[in-house]
C-alpha cells in the first residue's frame, strides 16, 4: 500500500516536473547589453551553419566567461521565423531572407559569415567528369533519362534531390539549373543520406555542399569549371551560397561581439576552412539576394 502510493507520488511529481520544464523551455532570459559582455545568446537555424557556430561559440565563451551562447539547429525556416519573432537572437540561414516567403526581410540585418560551394555529384561508376549547364538542366528536369545521351554508360539516370524547402536545393536550382523546375526524384532530408544514396545507387546524380564531400562520390565540373575555392571566390563557378546570421535590427552587446568574432581570423582562418567552407573575408565578389554579382 505504502509502496503504491509512493510510486504514484513519484509518477505525478515526474509529470509535473516535465510540464514545468516544458513551460520554462520557451522563455528566455533577456540579453544583458552592458559593457562587460555578459548575457545569453541563442542562435537557431540552418544545420549547415550549426557546426561552425557551435565551434566558434565554444571558443568565444572560453574568452568571455560571462556570455552563454546556445546554438540550435532546426533548419533555415525555423531560424528566420524565430529571429523575426524575437524568440532567438541570431537566425542562421543558408539562403537570403528575401528568398523565403513569409519572412519580413526588411526588419532583419544580414551578417554573411562564410560561403559554401555546391557541386553536382554522381555515382563513382559513371565515367563522366564534365556536364554543360544545358546537359545538367536536361538531366534534372527529366528530359535526359539515360547517361548514354551525355556520353556516359547505358544506365538509367536516378535523380536524388533535397526537399524543396532546403537551402541547398534552392541554391542549386537557382544557380546551376537557371531556375528550371526539377523532375520528381528521390528526395532526402539530409545531405549525409544523399551522399550515401548517390554512392550506392547505380546511375544516381545529386548535389551536395562541398563540406559534405569525402571522396565517396564523384564531383562533376559544370561547363568545364571545377567547384574549387579559387573558382568560387573569383566568381567563375556560380553555384554557392552565403551562410547568413540574421539579427532583428542592429545587434548590441554580446550578440554584436559574437558576430564580430565570427569575422576574425580566429574563426575565418581556422574553423571555416576546416569545415569545408570558404571564409567570407576571402570572397573577391559580392552577390545580392537577386543574384546580381559585382566585384568587391
Amino acid at each position: 500500500m505504502l509502496k503504491k502510493s509512493t510510486f504514484m507520488v513519484f509518477a505525478v511529481l515526474c509529470l509535473t516536473a516535465l510540464l514545468v520544464l516544458a513551460g520554462c523551455g520557451g522563455s528566455k532570459q533577456a540579453t544583458d547589453k552592458t559593457q562587460q559582455l555578459s548575457g545569453n545568446v541563442t542562435a537557431v537555424g540552418s544545420t549547415a551553419i550549426q557546426p561552425l557556430a557551435e565551434q566558434a561559440a565554444t571558443q568565444f565563451m572560453a574568452k568571455n566567461t560571462g556570455v552563454k551562447i546556445v546554438v540550435q539547429g532546426g533548419g533555415s525556416g525555423v531560424g528566420l521565423t524565430q529571429v523575426s519573432q524575437g524568440a532567438a537572437d541570431i537566425g542562421n540561414s543558408d539562403i537570403f531572407a528575401e528568398e523565403k516567403s513569409g519572412i519580413d526581410a526588411a526588419q532583419l540585418v544580414d551578417h554573411q559569415v562564410a560561403v559554401v560551394g555546391m557541386a553536382a555529384v554522381i555515382n563513382p561508376a559513371i565515367n563522366i567528369d564534365n556536364l554543360t549547364k544545358q546537359q545538367l538542366v536536361d538531366i534534372f528536369t527529366g528530359k535526359t533519362t539515360n547517361w548514354s545521351s551525355v556520353g556516359g554508360p547505358d544506365q538509367k539516370i536516378v535523380l536524388v534531390n533535397r526537399p524543396k524547402a532546403s537551402g541547398t536545393r534552392a541554391t542549386f536550382k537557382k544557380y546551376a539549373l537557371g531556375g528550371a523546375e526539377e523532375a520528381n526524384g528521390i528526395e532526402e532530408d539530409s545531405s549525409g543520406t544523399v551522399r550515401k544514396i548517390v554512392k550506392e545507387t547505380p546511375g544516381a546524380i545529386g548535389y551536395l555542399a562541398l563540406s559534405y564531400l569525402d571522396g565517396s562520390v564523384k564531383i562533376v565540373n559544370i561547363d568545364g569549371v571545377a567547384p574549387t575555392k579559387d573558382n568560387i571566390v573569383t566568381g567563375k563557378y556560380p553555384v554557392w551560397a552565403y551562410m547568413h546570421c540574421y539579427t532583428k535590427g542592429k545587434p548590441g552587446g554580446a550578440i554584436d561581439a559574437f558576430l564580430n568574432y565570427l569575422m576574425t581570423d580566429d574563426v575565418q582562418k581556422t574553423i571555416v576552412p576546416q569545415l569545408g567552407y570558404i571564409p567570407g573575408t576571402e570572397m573577391k565578389i559580392v552577390r545580392d539576394s537577386g543574384g546580381n554579382v559585382k566585384n568587391k
Binding site: S76, G77, G102, A165, E187
Partner: peptide
Amino acid sequence: DPVITLTSAITMDMGNTPMGSLWN
C-alpha cells in the same frame, strides 16, 4: 517504385519553412 508518405512529407519540409507561411 519509390513513394512518399504524409509523415515523411511533413518531416522533410518542416524545419525549412517559416512558421505562418502557406507552405508551413
